[in-house]
Simulated scan of single mutants.
Amino acid sequence: MSPWPLTDSQTDPPRDPRRAPRADPLAALAELPGVPAAVAGVRQAVDAIYGHRVMRRRSPEVSAEAALRGARASAALAGADWPLEEVRRRSDFGATDEARTVGAALRLTAEAGESLSIWPSSPLRVLARLHLVAAAEPAPRATRDSVGRPRLAGEAVDESGLAELPTAPDAEEVAVRLEALSALVVAGSSAPALVMAAIVQGELLALRPFVTHNGLVARAAARVVLVGGGLDPKGVTPAELGHAEQGRAVYLDALGGYLTGTPAGVAGWIAHCARAVELGARESTAVCEALQRGAA
């Protein structure tokens, strides 16, 4: 069941995802209890890092470091929890499953920046490209003809990092809900970018539309929304790091709330995503302080 759009009362069960979304359904989600405060907290955290004096002179360095740390964290959530310095020094990411996961996360972070102009009009095209990039060196369980497209009926899903979730929907439901998600993105919304990013990530994690790399792709898509939506145009608040810092169990628990489709569950997931951005901003603030001291 898709947890959006909610009805006008914001208390009734979610509408059937096979029905076309009504005008700006995310606006209702942005008003759920706790969400406005979470959005305000994120805005304050982002404004603080962008106001740091180091950002005026060395923002490309901060952005690059944030991208590296975000990719490392996304890989950790997918089961490849490497130390940051190991990720920084390695050049070969094809030797093992963990290495391929880290390499995929790094490539996706770079690709996210190339997808900003395409996403608003062609989100499904971007998702296909993200999966293609992630699976550039496919793991043994991946098959060549499954790369860059949603899974077909009967194809198994690699649940790396997501095995505790309920069984993924079948291919038919995935196709319907991907089209609904695409329509939501293309229609645009007055809701904050944080809300859109949370729904995009949550829905992709719920659907697991590809045979492999679903968690990595979902987090990369959320990055596209946060950067392209104007909340974090320089990409210096790596939400992936914030998700990992809160812990994988907390991440999956918050996602479980989203999967219930209830207003409280969806609001809790959005608040969790907000906290992740705040923690990403805190990490980049520490990077700025280190640069200012000459320690990095």
Rank of each mutant, 00 (worst) to 15 (best):
S2F: 02
P5R: 04
T7V: 11
D8Y: 13
S9I: 10
R18G: 12
A23S: 10
P25A: 01
V39A: 02
V39T: 06
G41M: 15
Q44K: 14
I49N: 01
R56N: 07
R57D: 01
R58F: 01
S59W: 13
S63W: 07
A66D: 06
A66V: 12
L68S: 12
A80H: 03
W82R: 02
L84R: 15
L84S: 05
R90M: 11
F93K: 10
G94A: 14
T101D: 14
G103Q: 01
L108N: 04
T109D: 13
E111P: 10
A112N: 04
A112R: 04
A112C: 08
G113I: 10
L116F: 03
S117R: 09
W119E: 00
S121K: 06
S122W: 13
A128R: 00
R129M: 09
H131F: 06
H131G: 09
L132A: 12
V133A: 06
A135F: 00
A135C: 15
A139R: 03
A139I: 09
P140C: 07
R141P: 07
T143C: 12
A153K: 15
A153M: 15
A156F: 10
S160R: 15
S160L: 15
G161P: 00
A163D: 12
E172V: 14
V176D: 01
L181C: 11
A183L: 09
A183P: 00
V186G: 05
G188D: 13
S189N: 09
S190C: 06
A191G: 05
A191S: 03
I199A: 06
G202T: 04
L204R: 12
L205W: 06
T212A: 00
G215W: 00
L216I: 04
A218Y: 05
A221P: 02
R223D: 03
R223Y: 07
V224D: 02
V225R: 05
V225W: 00
G228L: 02
L231P: 02
P233Q: 03
P233A: 08
G235L: 05
V236S: 10
V236W: 05
T237G: 01
G247Q: 10
R248I: 05
R248D: 10
L252P: 01
L252S: 11
G261P: 07
G261C: 02
G261W: 01
V266W: 01
W269C: 05
I270A: 04
A274D: 11
R275T: 08
V277K: 14
L279H: 12
A281R: 05
C288T: 08
E289I: 12
A295H: 13
